[in-house]
Design a protein around this nucleic acid. Sequence first.
DNA 1: TTAAATCTTTGATGTAAATCAAGTTTTGAA
DNA 2: TTCAAAACTTGATTTACATCAAAGATTTAA
Lengths: 243, 243
Amino acid sequence: MNKEKTMNNNQHTNCCHHDNCSGNNESCVAIVPIFNHLEKSQMEEIMGVTHSVAYKKGEVIYSAGDQADSLYIVNMGRVRIYRLSEAGKEQLLRILKPGDFTGELALFNETLHEAYASAMVDTSICTVKRLDLQDLLLKYPSISLKVMAEFSRRLERAERQTTRLATEKVDTRIALFLAECLEVGSMNNEITLPMSKKDLASYLGTTPETISRKLYELETLGYIRLISNKKIQIIDLDSLLLI
Amino acid sequence: MNKEKTMNNNQHTNCCHHDNCSGNNESCVAIVPIFNHLEKSQMEEIMGVTHSVAYKKGEVIYSAGDQADSLYIVNMGRVRIYRLSEAGKEQLLRILKPGDFTGELALFNETLHEAYASAMVDTSICTVKRLDLQDLLLKYPSISLKVMAEFSRRLERAERQTTRLATEKVDTRIALFLAECLEVGSMNNEITLPMSKKDLASYLGTTPETISRKLYELETLGYIRLISNKKIQIIDLDSLLLI
DNA sequence: TTAAATCTTTGATGTAAATCAAGTTTTGAA
DNA sequence: TTCAAAACTTGATTTACATCAAAGATTTAA
């Protein structure tokens, strides 16, 4: 069951247990939307309270049940956020890219994490301690506005996903997902799946077998073309969305 | 209640499209968690920018596609927030009680509403305009902390629900729901369903028929006892959660 | 109070998608 | 580069649940 054969449970309480420590803080603060609108001097102040930590591919960043006391901002790499069902089945919730953050839930509520976060590739992360963050938010209210904007976006997405899982058939969920991949930006309607089909299945609340079959079916219908494992060309978006 | 009788209407500019207008602002600001921790003088300032509106049972408060420009705080009554699937199927997302708020999503993001809000019973609501709210948040950063705490709680719930819909069978989802109803507080393990079974079905991503059958099944197993339409006694919580 | 509308239950039937199993392909670490 | 471990595909089978239909409840409004 336990796929993370992590060497040791490293508690990154402070900085610098890992390699790339200091200095990186700068880039981190500068790239995240919640901070990068501030004055240079303010950013420098923030750098003072951030800690940079590096995680190897597969390493766990936090687990459900952990006491949450930091905000985690992805500086480089990719982080998967997932939950486990009662039966231990994994469900992928989202994938963080540089500039995204997590850990905030418990930060404001003194609760434990309910989700897991692990590094999908070698990843560097900046952390800000609960109390430091609260100070920052009180001192620079505009940060709060950014954080709230991000929260509300996430909330919107989470509720949209909830509705899809509750009301749409698998075909439709796949079609909607493909359409969203397309939106982002793509050469001649060609998309690259941002995750493995196993993960996609988990994200969409289905199984890899079903994903495989449905994609084949969509190709048969002439709506898409399967180019390679991760590449798909959308041929008829309108029909796709009418499924 | 009844404090409105003693009040005269001032300080609200474009209030009074509906009946019960003045005076209620006070109770509204005083009861919501995002404001009620403030100083009296600060609350009074906030009252100055809130508008009280009454909705009759069934009235729509906002619809998907509407431009969102206000925060809605429930003062009295009950509000259902729901979405429509691509096929027009309704999905209940949550039910707001006095003190809860909605409309915030688009408030920080200049987007349109994606959900619908309608009054389940006669309801009175306080609204705060986008710009007024932003001023308040910048002026009183502690309000932001409250709002973020509420957001993160909602996010947690939304993601939990997503995971349940994606990974659990209907039995389990029902069992988990019943268990949550129990938590809140209940005499001798007796719970009162907070919504119709039709709504519950929608919330849990299933159908009323299935709800009906599964509840009967749970009774047969001896885990619960169906007292009346809306009342259920939980007999064996542990077994219920092991389904 | 009564009738209409809405919700709920129960039964019969259909089906989408999960599961199981066994190959094939891709990936990544040594 | 090679080889083992994952990930992916395809087929056969099972099943959980939706759908349809029609009879009881309950709620609502006149």
